[in-house]
Design a protein around this nucleic acid. Structure first.
Lengths: 232, 232
DNA sequence: ACAAAAGTGTTAAAAGTACACCCATGC
DNA sequence: GCATGGGTGTACTTTTAACACTTTTGT
């Protein structure tokens, strides 16, 4: 029995390919799309920010690894997870040959900017970043993040995943904000409402929310399962 | 230095995850979508058909592995290759823990049903199958093939990949046949031609082809690079 | 002259886009 | 009474879908 579990500090030719997962975790806060990053402590990327990730265990599926690593490194669980793409550049990890299966995950509010987040001692911090400010990440994570944003925008337009970025009950304005934050451009209020309501994916829950001004009708998704529907 | 390169005949808990690629290779022949399969000789799947695949080497990228394995096992090279999805079920290979990155590849005619194909001694045969007759494949390849077909249909509708399923010069009827074979349903001739020509992706090459009856105008793609365009 | 595939337009329905004002509430 | 966000309809344009006959060639 033998293991190859120690990384060589200067890279020799590795003997085995290691398999990892990385998670691009999104939420919409303050009208902007945010991504959850951890701060690295280990050597080549000390103090740089990265997507939460880690090695896949030999006895777990990729989806299970993504869920485990997400929870271990951020304290977040039970969220939407979808496999994105597998990244295999030879030099994406300077110390070892690591192929990474990237996942997208979506978290619904209420998400407070700091509460509920924890990480292992292997990382010095976890926090939400506006995607517009998340750059110069470790490894090839800029590339993964860029691809994840495109996939998310596409999914929002062609499926009903938006339910996983919203609480159970929400105003149509909240839904529109999610679309605008992800797509990165404003939408016409009347056309948006017409379109969304015509799809029959959401239904009014009669109640109104007492805000500072005229109360809004609250809605919920009829089904919270992934279902493909063309939107916008 | 130690290796774990021998598969255990009865499965013990493997020590390492192995990384493979599998290729779903498509072409359109005789008006039907075909997929290239190899026949297995090795133990648990003897005589069953499978997608060409193999382990990724530690010093090659995923794309390079897909291209290498494609050529080694089928003699086919220089074709369209696109990463599809990564399959990681624990029991997908009964002998070992193998995670597989699946690729879709597309081959343009002229493709003769048998010529140009060769394989290694590790397999007993290679041949094209109509996708409608390709089932009960080894491993989880039924699932991979099913997903690959969906992706291909999607790509055809939303991009101009169809160039990689056609020769340099082709008739509009050939193009329509490709669409019909992949999508699995007939298209209206006039609407198809109107739509295709309005996209400006192809141009007439003036020549006509001498067939048994009225000759057809030949066309070519203006660009043979992947470009996203909505079609149909 | 006939068989076989090529080529060609119009109409109706549906979907998308642009656009501006009144409403209900808290302060 | 005013500031704030909630809510609503119409006209125009674009896209899609349905549909049948004439043309050109080889035999």
């Amino acid at each position: 029995m033998c293991y190859m579990n120690t990384k060589s500090p200067a890279r020799e030719t590795p003997q085995e390919i290691r398999l990892a997962v990385d998670n691009a975790i999104f939420t919409v806060m303050e009208g902007a799309l945010h991504v959850l990053l951890i701060q690295m402590t280990k050597k080549p990327f000390t103090r740089q920010w990265a997507l939460p990730g880690g090695l896949v265990r030999v006895d777990e599926t990729l989806d299970a690894a993504a869920a485990r690593i997400l929870e271990e490194q951020t304290g977040v669980k039970d969220v939407y997870l979808e496999q994105l793409y597998t990244f295999g550049r030879l030099d994406r990890d300077p110390l070892d040959r690591v192929v990474s299966v990237a996942y997208v995950s979506l978290i619904a509010p209420p998400v407070s900017p700091t509460q509920g987040l924890r990480t292992t001692t292997k990382y010095s911090a976890v926090r939400w970043w506006r995607v517009s400010e998340a750059s110069r990440l470790a490894y090839d994570h800029d590339e993964i993040l860029s691809y994840a944003r495109k996939r998310l925008a596409w999914k929002l337009e062609y499926t009903n995943v938006s339910w996983s970025l919203l609480p159970r009950k929400f105003r149509l304005t909240d839904l529109q904000r999610v679309y605008e934050a992800v797509l990165g451009h404003p939408l016409d209020k009347r056309n948006f409402r017409k379109k969304i309501l015509s799809l029959g994916l959401i239904e009014s829950v009669g109640e109104v929310e007492g805000g500072a001004h005229r109360p809004a009708m609250l809605y919920r998704f009829r089904s919270r399962r992934p279902r493909i529907v063309e939107i916008l």
